[in-house]
Design a protein around this nucleic acid. Structure first.
Lengths: 222, 222
DNA sequence: TCTGTTCCTGAACAGCCAGTCAAGTCGGTG
DNA sequence: CACCGACTTGACTGGCTGTTCAGGAACAGA
C-alpha cells in the first residue's frame, strides 16, 4: 500500500511529470466524452499514455479515482471563475462575467461544455453515494456563495439596492442550473445566447439593476 | 425474435398479467433506488418476480429496456400531472398545483422523489446517447408547454396580464429544475418548503399575479 | 559500480453479468 | 385427448474489465 503523497520537496519536478495530476486530467477528459458509465480504466490509461497497472498504482481503486476526478475538475472550474471574477471592479460586471462563464458553449475559448457534463455525472452519482452527496453539497454551496458575494459587494458599494443576497443567489444559481441543462443537451429551443439573455434579464429584475440593450446582446449575434 | 405486440383482442386480460408493463414498472423502481449504473437484469427480474431469462424474452436487450423504462416513467408523471391539473378551473390554482407536484417530497402521497431521480438519469444518458437525447428534448418541450398552456389560459381569462407565455414558461421550468436538483439531493439549505415558496414568489412576480401570505405558506409548517 | 527504492509494465486472474438455449409448463383448440 | 404456440425457467457461456503480481527499468545515494 505505497502512496505518493505529493511531488513536494524534491526541487526539480519539471522532469518528473506529476502522474497524480496527469491521471486525474485524463480521467476527467475521458469521463467528459464517453460518460462515467462508459469509462474504463484502460481508457484512462491510454489517454494518459501509461499502462493500466499504473493507474491502480496511484489510486487504490477505480471508484476512488472517479470520485477524485469529478471533484478535481469541478474545483478547477471554480478556481478559474473566482480568479477571473476577482479582478473585475464593478459588481455588475462581475455578475455578467459569471453568467457568461456559466453558459455552456458561449465562450469558445472556455466553454467546452465539459464542466456541465461532469457536473451532471456528479448529480447522478450523488443520488446513491453518500460521500459524493456531501461533496456535491459543499461544491454547490460554494457556487451559491460566490454569487451571493458578488451581490453583497454590489449592495455595499451602491450598485445594487438592498435585498436578501442568499435568497437571490439561490434563485439565480438555480435558474442557471436549469437552463444550462437544456443548453448542454443541445436543446434546439434553448440556445446559449437565449440562456444568457434570460439569466441576465431575470438577475437584473431580481437584484434590481439596469441592463442596456447592448449589454443584453453582447454574447453573440442579434 | 418473437414479440408480444399487445394484450389487445383476447378479452379476458385480467388473469394474464401484462408482463411488458410489469417489467417496465419493476425496472423504473430498481433504477430509482439503485441507480441506472447499478441496475442488473437480475435485479429487475427479482423485483418483477420473474426469471432473468424472461426479461430478455420481452425486451431485445438491456439497453432497450432501460431506455423504454425511463421514457415510460417520465410519461407516467406527465400524464398524472396533466390529468390533475386539467380539472382545476383557475389558472393560478393550476399553476400552484403544478408547482406542488414538482417539488420533490413535498406531497407525501406523490412525491416519492422518484421522478426526479429518473429524470437525472435521463440527462446523464442523453449526454452520450442520440436517441435518449431526442426523447429528452421531446419530454422537456412537453413539460414547458404544459406550463405555457396554463399561463396562456390565465392570460385569456384575465387572471394574468399579457406577456410572452413561452419565455415565462422557460424561466419557471428552468427554475423548478434547478431547485429540484438540490432538493432531491437533500441539500440542507434547500428544503421542499423553501423551494415551493421561492418558485411561487418568482412565478407570481414574473407572470404578474398576487399570492397571499397564506397561499405562500400552505405547503408545510411556518 | 553496487544497492535499494520508486516507478512502471504487461500478462494473468477472477468475478460478474448480458444474453442464449434446451427444456418444460400452461392454456386453448380441434 | 393430442397438438400447438405462447410463455417461462434456470443453467450455461463468452466476453469484458477491475485488480493483482512478478519482474524489469530508472534513478539516487554511497
Amino acid at each position: 500500500m505505497r502512496f505518493k503523497v505529493d511531488g513536494r520537496g524534491m526541487g526539480a519536478q519539471r522532469q518528473k511529470p506529476d502522474r497524480h495530476q496527469e491521471i486525474l486530467d485524463a480521467a476527467a477528459q475521458v469521463i467528459t466524452d464517453r460518460g462515467l458509465a462508459e469509462t474504463r480504466i484502460s481508457d484512462i490509461a491510454e489517454r494518459a499514455g501509461v499502462s493500466p497497472g499504473l493507474i491502480l498504482y496511484y489510486f487504490e481503486s477505480k471508484d476512488r479515482l472517479l470520485s477524485e476526478a469529478l471533484s478535481f475538475a469541478n474545483d478547477q472550474f471554480y478556481l478559474r471563475l473566482s480568479r477571473e471574477v476577482r479582478r473585475i471592479p464593478s459588481a455588475k460586471e462581475q455578475l455578467m462575467r459569471l453568467i457568461d462563464l456559466s453558459v455552456p458553449g458561449l465562450l469558445p475559448e472556455y466553454g467546452r461544455l465539459d464542466e456541465w457534463a461532469l457536473w451532471i455525472e456528479v448529480w447522478t452519482r450523488a443520488l446513491h453515494n453518500e460521500k459524493m452527496a456531501r461533496d456535491r453539497e459543499t461544491l454547490d454551496k460554494r457556487w451559491r456563495d460566490s454569487i451571493a458575494d458578488i451581490i453583497r459587494t454590489g449592495q455595499k458599494n451602491g450598485e445594487f439596492p438592498e435585498g436578501d443576497a442568499d435568497e437571490l443567489a439561490l434563485r439565480i444559481g438555480a435558474l442557471i442550473d436549469g437552463l444550462a441543462i437544456q443548453v448542454v443537451m443541445n436543446d434546439s429551443e434553448v440556445t446559449p445566447h437565449r440562456m444568457r439573455q434570460t439569466v441576465l434579464e431575470m438577475a437584473a429584475k431580481e437584484i434590481g439593476f439596469e441592463v442596456s440593450r447592448q449589454e443584453l446582446g453582447a454574447g453573440a449575434k442579434s
